[in-house]
Design a protein around this nucleic acid. Structure first.
Lengths: 127, 127
DNA sequence: CGGCATCCCTTCCGATACTG
DNA sequence: CAGTATCGGAAGGGATGCCG
């Protein structure tokens, strides 16, 4: 059932599935969306501090992309020094359930996957 | 709720969430898993033909990775010319529901995302 | 038929330095 | 504080050619 729909869309130049999954697949989007999903509204440096290991550049790029996609909204307070707050839009929030399911699956099956990888790499070394 | 768990795992060196999401996020894995999810068992060149636009190299790499992760099983028939069949493992099948949810979300919200992107890029051109 | 090896171009992403 | 700009290494991925 999925296949035909999926193939039809995935192979398009502006494939929606791929477009979305590009966000899911990149290094920081899921983490940012999840943090905003729980934290509500956060400032740039709060996000930076919570994540801890992200570079300023990638946080900027990630947020800009999510904003362009309409998943995150950006509010600027015209102060000096500036204050910028980020929040999930309703569209962004609607993505949370699907993401959670995937994250849960990942955490539940990580040990099986890890074991499989070790077995697989072990196979090679025996040759 | 997600945040702490997610942060704890996502920032590890061998983060399980990222490891799994790397499969979901790469260019072909979702398509291959979905096709096998519907098609049952397929040969290498059948997959190649169904997808149509994938390079042989990437199909090989994708299948090898999925096999290493234990999501896809590979069966070789010792013939000449060789016959190799691919099937989802139970672990691979258990990923289908989460993937479907994400794919459904993508297809339902693609127009909203596209519209948002156009509006966002329009903003810049006006500056 | 079902790969693997190589080349090469593009994109990702971190580090660093600078700005309103 | 919240960015922008630039550089360079690393990874992704297509095209091609060879092989059991």
């Amino acid at each position: 059932m999925i296949k035909d729909n999926l193939k039809k869309y995935v192979l398009l130049d502006d494939c929606p599935v791929r477009n979305v999954l590009d966000r899911v697949g990149d290094k920081w989007s899921i983490l940012v969306i999840s943090i905003l999903g729980e934290g509500g509204t956060l400032r740039f440096n709060e996000l930076n501090a919570v994540i801890g290991t992200i570079s300023q550049k990638m946080l900027t790029v990630t947020l800009k992309t999510l904003e362009a996609d309409g998943l995150v909204s950006r509010k600027i307070y015209p102060q000096v020094p500036p204050r910028v707050e980020y929040t999930l839009t309703p569209l962004g929030e609607s993505l949370l359930p699907a993401m959670s399911l995937l994250v849960d699956w990942a955490m539940q099956n990580m040990s099986a996957i890890k074991a499989s990888r070790e077995q697989y790499s072990g196979r090679k070394e025996l040759v």
